[in-house]
Design a protein around this nucleic acid. Structure first.
Length: 423
DNA sequence: TCTGGGGTCCTAGGACCC
DNA sequence: TCTGGGGTCCTAGGACCC
């Protein structure tokens, strides 16, 4: 049996752990630049139907009227809290798949013959005791069923955040009370396609002709169909393979029409992805640079473009990548537009110890690696970006993300530790 | 005025090989 | 007139996830 453990309104819960005064109050967390709503606790969801990913300015009045507490996203805090939750989970099973920042699949075969419902409650209570984060747990024979059981566990209050699919009856009940779009892996498009055939519930889907499913939804759909029928097709994935591509692209805090600032932002993001690349000990063969104006804004002149740069030989040197990135940026940058976003993507990653040098390349690689290593060491010791390329600029980041309501990084910065009044 | 960011997997079709 | 059969590799685009 497999359990899917999922934190309840994770980002909002993280904020509430350190703010007991916000218990039972509506809380939402905003995306980068405080643009959209990306998490809402149950009090906030109960108040109004807060649509996720809605731009905040469209529902500002609702938030104000109900005194909803808004936080900018604080990923440093959420990542650290996630680690704590996962550490606790690891004490219950040796086989864990960290599926996302707030959920994990865990293998429960270790507990064969024991009452899984009791175990699940114990896991839930221990996580809450250790971290203050409430979780829901779904248990079933397959990952897809566990995922749905988890949703069901949270939806029905009597379930008390735990639902175990350990009988044919319960499987049927779960599937019959779930809609098509409740199924994990079925999104908007497929929901329409399936509903057009007259099916309404997950149970209907699980009883469709498998040939139809295969034809319309490819092998992914067929696996899902089999999983809902209790045949495991998806394994718990414990090893995390090196990523196949690494990228970053963030909207500026304000629109930019100055090449120098766009260049600064671009350099900054290249340094960021190059760092990630070195952390996973890979080197990139290809790099894409793109920039775009704000396409939501009809009034502005629109322009977007990208350029793909093939590197002479794979590299993870910030210096080399930045050089190439800025040559590329210059080629696609056009004056006279107000830019909203610049981004960089690295592809065709290879392990750094397998770099095939270009036939004509001078063996200066070693020196360049020494320099990069030295910079990494200094930054590890003295803090992020203490040593950086001049192209990143040394002034205040005029393009920085807007984060007006960011909470302290309670668990990772000494200066931001939680203080308790009166002590 | 204000609209996120980071991923994965699969298929079809082109281009090429023997 | 008659035009095989078996492959690989790569990319773009679709669909979905958190």
């Amino acid at each position: 049996m497999i359990a899917l453990v999922d934190c309840n309104s994770f980002y909002a819960s993280c904020e509430q752990v350190f703010r007991p005064d916000l218990q039972n109050r509506p809380v939402v967390v905003l995306s980068n630049n405080d643009g959209c709503i990306i998490a809402a606790n149950k009090e906030a969801k109960a108040l109004v139907d807060i649509p996720m990913f809605q731009p905040v300015f469209k529902i500002k009045k609702i938030l104000d009227d109900h005194h909803v507490v808004c936080f900018s996203s604080n990923y440093t805090l959420y990542s650290d809290m996630s680690r704590r939750v996962m550490d606790t989970l690891k004490t219950f099973s040796p086989l864990i798949e960290e599926y996302s920042i707030d959920e994990s699949f865990i293998d429960l075969s270790f507990y064969q013959g024991k009452a899984l419902e009791t175990i699940a409650h114990k896991i839930k209570d221990t996580i809450f005791k250790n971290t203050g984060i409430p979780v829901g747990i779904g248990v079933a024979k397959t990952k897809s069923l566990a995922k749905m059981a988890n949703k069901f566990a949270k939806k029905i209050p009597e379930n008390n955040n735990v639902y175990v699919v350990d009988s044919e009856e319960k499987r049927k009940h779960l599937l019959q009370t779930s809609t098509i779009k409740d199924i994990w892996g079925i999104g908007r498009k497929h929901t329409v396609r399936i509903e057009n055939t007259g099916k309404k519930t997950a149970w209907d889907f699980a009883n469709m002709e498998v040939a139809w499913v295969r034809k319309e939804m490819t092998v992914i759909g067929e696996r899902l169909w089999r999983e809902l029928n209790n045949f495991p097709c998806l394994e718990i994935v414990t090893s995390t393979d090196a990523k196949k591509g690494i990228g970053t692209a963030k909207s500026f805090g304000k629109k930019l029409d100055d090449y120098g600032l766009v260049e600064e932002a671009c350099s900054y993001y290249v340094a960021e992805v190059a760092d990630l690349l070195r952390q996973q000990k890979s080197a990139a063969t290809q790099m894409e640079i793109f920039l775009t104006t704000n396409y939501h804004n009809d009034g502005d002149k629109q322009y977007r473009n990208k350029i793909i740069i093939t590197l002479d030989s794979p590299t993870n040197s910030t210096i080399k990548l930045t050089q190439q990135a800025l040559i590329g940026l210059k080629k696609i940058y056009k004056d006279g537009y107000r830019y909203k976003k610049v981004g960089v993507n690295l592809f065709h990653l290879v392990p750094e110890h397998q770099i095939q040098l270009n036939l004509f390349e001078q063996p200066s690689k070693i020196e360049s690696k020494k320099l990069t290593d030295a910079i990494d060491t200094l930054n590890d010791k003295f803090g992020k970006n203490k040593v950086k390329l001049a192209t990143v600029g040394n002034r205040e980041k005029q393009w920085a993300l807007i984060k007006e309501h960011r909470s302290p990084r309670y668990t990772t910065q000494w200066e931001e530790l939680l203080t308790i009044g009166g002590l």
